Simulated scan of single mutants.
Amino acid sequence: MPDTTGNLTEAVVDSLGTTTDPRLRELLTALTRHLHAFARETGLTTAEWERAIAFLTATGQHCTDTRQEFVLLSDVLGLSMLVETIGGDSGGPATESTVLGPFHMTQSPVRALGADLDLVDGGEPCVVSGRVLATGGTPLPGAVLDVWQANAEGFYDVQQPDVQPPGNGRGLFTTDTQGRFWFRTCVPSPYPIPTDGPVGELLHATGRHPYRPAHIHFIASADGHTPVTTHIFVAGDKYLDSDAVFAVKESLVQEFTETDDPSLAREFGVPNPFRHARFDLVLQPS
Rank of each mutant, 00 (worst) to 15 (best):
M81S: 02
E10S: 13
P93Y: 04
P125T: 10
Q107F: 12
A152L: 03
D146P: 00
W49T: 09
V128I: 15
V144D: 06
D65E: 11
D14F: 02
G207K: 09
G43V: 14
G224H: 11
P285H: 13
T5M: 08
L35I: 14
G88Q: 05
L28Y: 07
T185D: 04
F246G: 00
T66G: 06
H34T: 15
G130W: 10
A47H: 11
H215R: 09
G169N: 09
D241W: 01
I86A: 14
S251A: 15
G167I: 01
A222Q: 11
L31K: 04
R180T: 10
T259V: 13
T138P: 02
A58G: 14
D21L: 00
P192C: 07
I216H: 02
R40F: 10
F274W: 07
F38K: 05
F233H: 08
E84L: 07
L79I: 09
V158D: 01
H209T: 13
D280G: 00
G78I: 11
P213W: 03
D261P: 08
G92S: 09
G136C: 11
P2V: 10
D157K: 01
P194K: 05
G207M: 03
L119E: 02
T259Y: 08
D118M: 04
H204V: 14
N7T: 14
I219E: 12
E124D: 13
R170Q: 10
P271A: 12
Q164V: 00
S97Y: 01
C63H: 12
D261K: 00
S251P: 01
A52K: 06
V282D: 00
D260P: 07
G171C: 03
L35Q: 13
H209D: 15
L203Y: 12
G179K: 01
R40H: 15
A244Y: 05
L56F: 15
R33L: 10
R23S: 14
D223I: 10
V199K: 00
P262D: 15
D260I: 05
V228C: 05
L202Y: 13
T29H: 02
T226E: 08
V282I: 15
D3T: 06
P161A: 07
P227N: 11
F55C: 06
E96N: 07
T106D: 10
A205F: 04
N151L: 06
T226W: 04
L79G: 01
Q160L: 14
R278W: 08
D260G: 09
N168V: 03
P262Y: 11
T59F: 08
M81H: 00
S263V: 09
